[in-house]
Amino acid sequence: MRNAFITAIGAAAIALIVGGCAGSQTAAEKKWAPGRTAWGDPDLQGQWNSQTSTPLERPLQGKLAGKETISEDEAEEFENSERATFDAAPRQGDPGTYNAFWRDQGKALTRTSLVIDPPDGRVPAVTPERQARMAEERKARSERGPADSYTDFSPWTRCISRGWNGIGSWYSSNYQIFQSPGYVVVFQELIHEPRIIPLDGRSHLPDSVGQWLGNSRGHFEGNTLVVETTNFDPRASYRGSSPKMMLTERYTPIDTNTLDYQFTVNDPTVFTKPWTVSRPMRRQTDGISVFEYACHEGNYAMKNMLAGARADEKAGRTPTRNAGGEGR
C-alpha cells in the first residue's frame, strides 16, 4: 500500500518535472475547492477515519526522539514495531489484552508527534496547582483496589464517553459528518456519540450545564469549519484539563479525501500555554460504514472485573490490576 503511494507520488513528481513547471502544483492545490451543500456551506459530509500510530507526544527516547519529521520508510518501520508490541505475551498471571489482531493500527505519519504546537511536540507543562491536585487524585486512587467499584474505572471502560473525536482511539476511529442548514454533526462511531454543532451564532449553554462532550458552537471561516466547545463535565478531563477548557477545532478540507483536522486546548488554569494537535482525517471510500457500537449493552467485562476482584478477596488473594482493562 505504502509502496503504491510512493510510486504515485513519484509519478506525480515526474509529471511535474516533465511539464517543466514545478510551481503548478501549488497553483493546482490552491485551485481545488470543496463542493458545496445545496444551501451553500462547504461540504464536509461523508465517512472519515483518523486512525494513526503516530504518538500524541514526540517520544523523549528511541527513534522518534529529537526530530520533527521522519521519512516514509522510517514511519513504516515505526508502525510495524508498534504493532509487534501488541502481540507480546502478557506477564505471568495477567490475562492479557487485545492483541494486534483486535487493534486498528493506522498509518504512521511522517511527523513524530500529533502535537504540532509547541514545536517540541510535547503537551506543555501543567501548572503547579493542577499538578498538586492530580497527585492527590492519584494518591487517593492508589489507596483503593483496582476494582473496588465501577467508579474505579475510566469513563472509557464504563462505556459512558470516549471524548471528542480529536482524541482518537486504538480502534474504530470512525466518524461520519452530517450537515443540514444551520448544523454540522460529527457522529462518532464509538459510544454512538453525536457532536452536534449549531452554526447560527447562539451562545453556549449556561455554566451550570456540564456535558461529557461539552457544548459546541461552530462557524465557517472560508472552507474551514471552526468549532468552539466549552461546558465540559469535570469528569470528562483529558490529560488533566478542567471544565473551563476552551477547545477550538478546525476542519479544513484540503483535497477530496483529506480533512486537515486540528484542535487547540486553551485551559490556562491547567496548561501553562495552549497546545495544538493535528490528526488528519481520511475519507473512507471502500464502503466501510460507521456501525452501531453498543458498548454498554455488552459491557460484560465490567461485571466480570468487579466479580473477579470480589472472588479474589473471598479466596484471600489481593485483586491485581489487569494491565489491559484501561487501555486507550
Partner: peptide, 9 residues
C-alpha cells in the same frame, strides 16, 4: 433530525 439533500445520508 439532520437532513441533507440528494443521496446524502
Amino acid at each position: 433530525i439532520v437532513q441533507s439533500s440528494g443521496t446524502n445520508d
